[in-house]
Design a protein around this nucleic acid. Structure first.
Lengths: 264, 264
DNA sequence: ATAATTATTTTCACTTTTAAACATTCTGTC
DNA sequence: GACAGAATGTTTAAAAGTGAAAATAATTAT
């Protein structure tokens, strides 16, 4: 996103609506350029396109979160689609907090008869539209910025269940396979989910391999399958192969799937 | 959908019905344009076309709920405003399911430092916009139709707390003061709220005195204050006086909206 | 029941907006 | 300096939005 696009976004956020003509004059570019900017921002669901201008996207209040939400959106959507394809109808699943897991929720909308337990208000809102689903909301303290629910009460709540699949996102994966996050409370919840799921699906786009968070969640060997968008670093790939963690890679052009190779 | 259409939709959702003439004047366009908007919205089944205007859609998933939400809206808003005025800043409160309690949540938005426990997804969404609030979501099974959360897990969750105010809505109040609701699960949650609140505020518009539901929730003598929009029936008023339940009535210059009878 | 009124549909003309294709400029790399 | 790639500008045809007028349908008043 370039400077001008950020400013457009900020203008929309302050004024609710801006016309293409105004923007073109303000930034001293042609309306065509503004159109390209707006179309691009629109694809990222950061704002809504109207005839003659652009306005606030449906219900974005938290800009910081909304921006994070669109980082690597394409990748996340590919990952989400692939992950959803591995969840059978009528399965019971945990879905925890995270922008990637929200995309997975969207990808699951057309499934049938799922029973979902989540600590994410957005996930609940997304999945509520399908009447064949049974949605169970985990109780606890609501985080304003992303609608996540955490805390001791949440953990106790989650422990009441045992489900088929636990779908978790993550902030960063260290080179030795350590899973890390920024928020202690969120980590506690994720651990509870891991303990109470028969299979764990970890969804993480490639950016997570290049970042550092500080709270240890666990190790990548605890998961059953890793869903990502690019082949992971060599060392991680080795660990996955050794521990027989399935690796699914949703690459841009064609969908490539790599199965774990036998340890030599 | 353009912004005008969105606003039309929102108007319909709030008022139940809008006339084409009014809309044309409001938006400063010809009635023809409004007609096109309405026809388009109608094709999407977002609202229903009537001769001379448009009203709530009758084929939306939860019409039942949407209709209920609009019924006696003005009264509910008056009741909500008055109820909110009796809640001090920094109070801890339960808010349960119900269209009236949702209005109360809206009326509470400008308070400060509230700590709210709710089993209503909509209430959580409404109050999340105020960063000074601490919101705790009760866990449990999500009801598709209204975002309410009920079940044993919810009751256990609520029992973990003891708050200053419990704000509850109700489906009907019998002539002898019996509080009644339609849903057993919802009643169980309301009872848990009553048990764990120092003060109970009951919010009910006048229509609740004329209806019958079947699940007994409790008796009006269990509440500390009743908030309504018209003086209750004499017998109820007597009970309230005898048992020293406070009665707050938010009356207003009567304002009636005529609904058209048949959709086109 | 009939006339008068009001709302709706249909059609057409006009303007603005959009998208697509291609030309141009700019930028960084080799 | 040549080149590739991205961003921007230009032109043009298609699409969308709007308003006006006439014909038809529905509603209300007499």
């Amino acid at each position: 996103m370039n400077q001008r696009q950020q400013e457009i976004l900020s203008l929309v956020q302050h004024q609710g609506f801006v016309s293409i003509e105004t923007l073109a004059q303000n930034f001293a570019v042609t309306s065509q350029t503004i159109r390209r900017d707006i179309n691009s921002l629109c694809e990222q669901e950061l704002l809504t396109r109207y005839h003659g201008g652009a306005g606030l996207s449906s219900s974005v209040e938290n800009v910081e979160y909304a921006t994070r939400q669109v980082m690597h959106l394409e990748e996340k959507q590919r990952i989400a689609k692939m992950t959803a394809a591995h969840i059978p109808d009528k399965a019971s699943i945990f879905i925890n907090i995270g922008t990637t897991t929200e995309e997975i929720a969207k990808a699951l909308q057309d499934h049938n008869g799922l029973r979902i337990i989540t600590n994410n208000l957005n996930v609940a809102a997304i999945l509520r539209s399908n009447p064949s689903f049974e949605i169970i909301m985990a109780g606890g303290v609501v985080r304003q910025r992303d609608g996540g629910i955490t805390g001791e009460a949440t953990i106790d709540f989650i422990r009441q269940f045992k489900v088929d699949f636990g779908i978790i996102g993550i902030s960063s994966i260290d080179i030795d396979g350590t899973l890390l996050d920024f928020d202690y409370h969120e980590v506690r919840v994720a651990q509870a989910i891991i303990e109470n799921s028969r299979q764990i699906f970890l969804a993480a786009d490639h950016s997570k391999f290049e970042r550092c968070a500080m709270v240890r969640l666990g190790n990548i060997t605890q998961v059953d399958a890793l869903f990502t968008d690019q082949p992971p670093p060599a060392h991680i790939a080795e660990i996955l192969a050794e521990t027989k963690v399935s690796l699914f890679t949703a690459e841009a052009d064609s969908l490539k799937i790599a199965y774990p190779t036998e340890a030599i």
